[in-house]
Amino acid sequence: MQQYLFIALLTITMLAGCVGKTNSNFDEETVNKARDTVESYLYNNYENIRTVEFSDDLSDPMGGLMIRGTVNGNAGFSASVDPQEFTVNSLGEKKGFPKVKDECKEKVCGY
């Protein structure tokens, strides 16, 4: 019985550690620079971007910075940004997100 209790407590502790890591561990200057990078990336690589709005910013499990927001008022995104190089590692797009520009499909068109 004690073995099951130990396993349950260990599991809860591990889950609490994962949940506790969701807050941003980055200073305001780093977050603002990452947001500028993401905004520039979106305008340069996607069609018809009129507005970019940001919401919460979080640490990702690999120590990077996750920038979240919406474009054009309704299409959500989350971008993983390297906090050292300030490059976009990946971009998650929600339904209705604008399409990638034709010239940017094979390679990133810059920031």
Rank of each mutant, 00 (worst) to 15 (best):
L65W: 05
V52T: 05
G92T: 14
Q3D: 15
D27E: 14
A8I: 14
V81H: 13
V71R: 00
I67D: 00
A16E: 09
R35A: 09
V81L: 15
G20F: 07
N72I: 10
D36V: 00
S55H: 01
A79R: 11
I7V: 13
N23D: 13
K101N: 07
T51V: 02
I12H: 05
E93C: 03
S59M: 07
T87W: 04
V38T: 12
N89M: 12
N74R: 08
N45H: 01
D82I: 01
D60P: 06
T30W: 00
G92W: 10
E29L: 00
K99R: 10
E103T: 02
N89K: 12
L10Y: 03
D56H: 01
S78P: 05
C109Y: 00
K94Y: 15
F6Y: 08
Y4S: 13
T37D: 14
T30I: 03
V38I: 13
L15V: 10
T70P: 02
E106F: 04
F54N: 06
R50K: 15
D82C: 05
V88E: 09
F77D: 13
N72W: 15
E39A: 14
A34L: 08
A79V: 08
E47M: 07
V88L: 09
G63I: 09
S59C: 05
A79T: 08
E93F: 03
N89G: 10
E29M: 00
I7M: 10
T13R: 00
A16Q: 06
G63W: 00
T87K: 11
Y43K: 09
C109E: 01
Y46S: 05
V19F: 11
G110N: 04
Q84W: 00
K33G: 08
Y46M: 08
T87G: 06
F6A: 10
D102E: 14
V52I: 12
K99T: 09
K105H: 11
V81T: 13
T51P: 02
S40P: 05
P61S: 06
Q84M: 06
V108A: 15
V52P: 08
P98T: 02
K99I: 04
L42H: 03
A75T: 10
Y111K: 06
Q84N: 11
P98Q: 01
D82W: 02
E103D: 06
F77I: 05
G64D: 12
V88G: 07
C104E: 13
A8N: 06
M66Y: 11
K105F: 12
M1R: 05
Q3F: 09
Y46R: 01
D57T: 09
L58F: 07
C109I: 00
F86N: 11
T11Q: 04
E103K: 04
T87F: 02
Y41F: 15
V108C: 15
T13K: 00
T87I: 12
T22I: 12
Y41D: 12
L42R: 01
V38R: 09
M1N: 06
N48R: 07
K99W: 08
Y4C: 11
G20S: 13
E28C: 00
Q3M: 15
Q2I: 08
N44E: 15
V88W: 02
T51D: 06
V19A: 13
G73F: 04
A16T: 09
M66A: 14
I67G: 03
S40I: 11
F86A: 10
V52C: 03
L10D: 08
N32H: 14
A34K: 05
S24H: 04
Q2C: 02
L15K: 07
Y46K: 02
L91P: 11
Q2G: 10
E103I: 03
